[in-house]
Design a protein around this nucleic acid. Structure first.
Lengths: 214, 214
DNA sequence: GATAAATTCTAACTTGCGCTAAAATATCGA
DNA sequence: TCGATATTTTAGCGCAAGTTAGAATTTATC
């Protein structure tokens, strides 16, 4: 009971709350599976039955943890952006040249993907309702801006060549988004090799005259 | 009438055939709208009603040109890969260094997108049935291989630095796929600026010792 | 202008999926 | 062990979207 038809749709989630350790971990597991499946097949094609099945549950069980499919997806987007932001802040705090930060961030993101699976960083979110969409979109834009700042710093400190940060960031994001689709199906692929490829292409291209040592 | 329940699902399309000029052009228009909408929203979220509405038609009218939604999407994928391949072959035939070919191909692809809208080059196709999927996937793999050859040529002729072609091609494709999602919503964005960004990042990175003139 | 063919529409059927209610089972503290 | 709470299931509703059949309408041809 106590379905609690909550009108303020922006609050994270509105479920029984104050639950046991185990319950929280199950919620996490559901969220993780949802992110993975939505990322792989898209929101519409990812059925509640599919997501539930990944945890040996029936679809109805998910509604004990999330009020509906949209809310589940929304929580997924939030979770992904949280991760992204955490990595970004950590790398930023560690300092260094712009190139150096960029390199460390890519490394951190790839490593995170290994541990926590592909995420819903950017990409489609048209299925969210306007409020949620705006929130996610705004957040994502802020993160993009922060990434752009790495590029600007790099251009200022000479570690990166002149470029249009806004465009280049999008290009980089494109590589990363697409990565989550094909990389899992490529045997023998390590983060080392991936970073090498990114390095040989993107970073060498951006590297400026004083790119030298870190 | 004459619905012709055709069992050999791999043949392009099986409709009344031998139709007038006008009919063919309408089929093209439908295909184009379908590609655009499927690309924007994903297969499942792109309804027949939406696609039809883009041409001021009711959903049922589409079934005069395509037997079902899957076949429409399949034709869309084929059309996109045809385009991709045509550009690839043309650029290859025109010769030049590996870097030169790569650069010309990207330019051609971007220009094509302006004229013919975003395409379904790669990306998701899980909604096709196995036969169709295999066909598309095989074709796409062949095209990737051809792109890789540009890189290998470039490494051989010294216009490109050493790299893993298979990975780098995927990274490039990622940039291009993601491009079709965000670029349309960016005002003031020209292909010139886009190419500049790609140049400053990817190509400068790949450029080898003898990258010099074309 | 009349007839046939080509094209589109209306109306309904079918299916799959999000979602709900309530019963059934598992978990845990006293 | 028993009762209360937490968790999951079964069963089914409702709706949206793919699809179809046949009627209606447009277009082409003589």
């Amino acid at each position: 009971m106590a379905k609690g038809a909550d009108p303020s749709a922006l609050t994270d989630d509105v479920r029984p709350l104050a639950q046991s350790e185990k319950s929280v971990r199950k919620r996490e597991a559901i969220l993780r599976a949802a992110i993975e499946i939505i990322n792989a097949r898209g929101f519409a094609a990812a059925t509640m039955t599919d997501i539930a099945a990944a945890l040996d549950l029936k679809d109805a069980a998910l509604y004990y943890y999330f009020p509906n499919k949209q809310a589940l997806a929304y929580a997924g987007h939030q979770r992904s952006l949280e991760r992204f932001e955490a990595l970004l802040l950590r790398v930023d705090a560690d300092g260094g040249t712009g190139l150096c930060k960029l390199r460390r961030f890519l490394r951190a993101l790839l490593d995170d993907a290994v541990d926590n699976g592909p995420q819903l960083y950017f990409g489609d979110n048209s299925y969210l309702d306007p409020d949620q969409r705006l929130a996610i979109e705004t957040w994502a834009a802020r993160l993009s801006k922060r990434l752009e700042r790495f590029l600007e710093e790099g251009m200022a400190d000479g570690s990166l060549a002149p470029c249009e940060p806004e465009l280049v960031v999008q290009l980089i994001l494109g590589m990363l988004i697409w990565l989550t689709k094909w990389a899992p199906g490529t045997p023998g692929l390590t983060n080392e090799r991936l970073l090498g490829a990114i390095e040989s292409m993107a970073l060498n291209g951006l590297a400026g005259p004083r790119a030298g040592r870190e």
